Lab assay of single mutants.
Amino acid sequence: TQSIHIEKSDTAADTYGFSLSSVEEDGIRRLYVNSVKETGLASKKGLKAGDEILEINNRAADALNSSMLKDFLSQPSLGLLVRT
């Protein structure tokens, strides 16, 4: 696993530069990185398409609903625990 911390203040970007997809496997919801913008903040921090997001801001990914995800992604900083 890899811990990634991203700050939007690093650039004038209003997004982190990646998209997520939610997949249900064996009754457990998993979050995967769908795509990463080549010039985006997430790419600079090493996030890659296909990575599994285990935690966002110290909250287990399978416990997050879509409104919580939207809220986290609109925050000025983001902490991710990722399995590559």
Rank of each mutant, 00 (worst) to 15 (best):
R29I: 08
D62S: 13
L78H: 04
T11F: 10
V82I: 10
D51Q: 11
L54K: 04
L41W: 04
T1V: 15
T15G: 15
N57A: 00
L41M: 05
D14E: 14
G40Q: 02
L73S: 06
V33M: 00
L47G: 01
Q2S: 08
G40M: 01
E25P: 00
K48Q: 09
K44E: 09
S22E: 14
A60W: 01
L73G: 04
H5S: 07
Q2D: 00
G27C: 03
N58T: 10
S67C: 14
T84P: 15
E24H: 09
S9W: 01
N65W: 06
L64S: 03
P76T: 10
Y16M: 02
K48D: 04
K8M: 08
V33W: 00
A42I: 04
F72A: 14
V33F: 06
A42N: 01
Q2A: 05
R59I: 15
F72K: 03
D26E: 13
T15Y: 08
E55D: 03
V23W: 06
A12F: 12
L47H: 01
N34K: 15
S9P: 10
I6N: 04
A42V: 04
N57E: 06
L78V: 11
L73P: 02
R30F: 00
S9L: 01
L73W: 10
A13C: 07
S35W: 09
E24Y: 12
E55Q: 07
N57H: 03
I56H: 00
S21L: 10
M68W: 00
T39D: 15
E52Y: 02
G46R: 00
K37I: 12
S74K: 15
R83T: 06
A12N: 14
R30M: 02
N65A: 06
A42L: 04
H5W: 09
K48A: 08
D10Q: 09
D71M: 14
L78K: 03
Q75P: 02
S66P: 14
D51Y: 07
R30Y: 04
S77E: 10
L69S: 07
E38V: 09
H5D: 05
Y32W: 09
L31F: 05
A49M: 12
S19Q: 12
A12S: 12
G40S: 07
S43L: 06
A13P: 08
E24D: 13
Q75N: 11
D51K: 01
R29W: 05
L47S: 03
S74T: 14
L73N: 05
A49C: 11
M68K: 10
N65F: 00
E25R: 11
L73Y: 10
S9F: 05
L64V: 14
E55M: 07
L54Y: 03
F72L: 13
S74M: 15
G17Q: 00
S66M: 14
L64Y: 07
A63M: 12
N58H: 13
T1S: 07
G46D: 04
A42P: 00
T39K: 12
I6L: 15
S74F: 12
T11V: 08
G79R: 15
S9V: 01
D51S: 06
Y32M: 08
E24W: 13
D10N: 10
S66R: 08
H5K: 05
F18P: 00
L73Q: 09
R29Q: 13
A63V: 11
R59W: 09
A60V: 08
E24M: 11
A12Y: 06
Q2M: 14
F72N: 12
L81S: 09
L81E: 10
K8H: 05
S74E: 15
E24G: 04
F72V: 11
L47V: 07
K70P: 05
E25H: 12
K37C: 15
G79V: 14
S67E: 15
S9E: 08
G17P: 05
D14Y: 03
L80G: 05
V36N: 00
A61Q: 04
I4R: 01
V36P: 00
F72W: 07
S43T: 05
L81V: 11
E52N: 04
S21G: 06
L73T: 04
R83S: 03
I53K: 02
K44R: 15
S74Q: 11
R59C: 14
D10K: 10
L64A: 05
A13M: 07
D51H: 09
L78M: 13
E7D: 09
M68T: 15
I4Y: 02
G40V: 05
L54H: 01
A12K: 14
S3N: 14
E55S: 09
T11Q: 10
S22L: 14
S21H: 13
T1K: 07
D26R: 11
G79E: 15
D26C: 10
M68L: 08
E55P: 00
A63K: 13
R30L: 02
L69E: 06
N65C: 10
S66A: 14
D62Y: 13
V33E: 02
L41Q: 08
N58K: 15
